[in-house]
């Protein structure tokens, strides 16, 4: 499903060399490593937000190494969720659908369906600045999932959450994973993915 081969990239003092990754459909892979080890950069390389120096990114058999980010079948959940502050929750979730030229009725129906599934229907008219960390995460997840990505990239998704919210976040990510989406979850905290990941990669070591 997701095949990254010999990825190379460098910026400033950081350099990534010969990073490879092979994930099957439905895999939940944890990418572990300390801060500054380049975990986020790997996600951005897969999402196309940074250009690879060498190597390739193949998703579902199709080479996406040179595909611009907007055309990759990839969803990226940012660490700070990156909700658009000038749009309501509804508009945030509807944004990727509107970009794709979906009909207004279809947009409304899809947004409401995902909002109901992620239990954020009552927040649709609110602005992102008024939401709690857990609510923001659900909105960002809904916004990413409406485009039905083949691969979901999660960048430290629980770092901004308090302990009680983490449990519900784990349950939420498990339910997303059960839909069969391939997930790559970046974290510096191995306990965060104990009950989620079926694969683990420690940066600098080989996949096990």
């Amino acid at each position: 499903m997701l095949s990254c081969t010999n990825m190379e990239y460098s910026i400033g003092a950081f350099s990534l060399r010969n990073f490879s990754l092979e994930l099957e459909r439905g895999d939940y892979c944890a990418l572990l490593g300390p801060s500054g080890s380049g975990k986020t950069i790997i996600l951005e390389l897969i999402a196309g937000l940074r250009p690879l120096k060498k190597g390739s990114v193949v998703i579902d058999g199709k080479d996406h190494t040179l595909t611009p980010p907007q055309h990759r079948p990839v969803g990226l959940l940012f660490q700070d969720y990156a909700l658009f502050p000038h749009m309501s929750v509804y508009e945030n979730i509807a944004y990727p659908l509107k970009i794709r030229g979906k009909e207004k009725a279809e947009v409304r129906e899809t947004v409401h369906a995902f909002a109901a599934e992620l239990d954020i229907s009552r927040h649709l008219n609110r602005m992102p600045g008024t939401l709690s960390g857990g609510e923001k995460q659900r909105v960002a997840l809904a916004r990413t999932l409406v485009i039905h990505p083949m691969v979901l990239l999660l960048d430290e998704p629980m770092s901004a959450l308090d302990a009680p919210l983490r449990e519900s976040s784990v349950a939420l990510l498990r339910s997303v994973s059960e839909k069969g989406i391939t997930i790559l979850h970046v974290t510096h905290d191995p306990s965060e993915v104990d009950s989620l990941a079926n694969r683990r990669i420690h940066l600098g070591s080989r996949s096990k």
Partner: peptide, 25 residues
């Protein structure tokens, strides 16, 4: 810059990012 990256990853072209995210903000 995170918001502009988010828009790109959600399917927006660079011009749409400029018009719908950067310019309004």
């Amino acid at each position: 810059g995170r918001l502009e990256q988010a828009a790109r990853s959600l399917g927006a072209s660079p011009f749409k990012v400029f018009r719908q995210i950067s310019l309004p903000l």
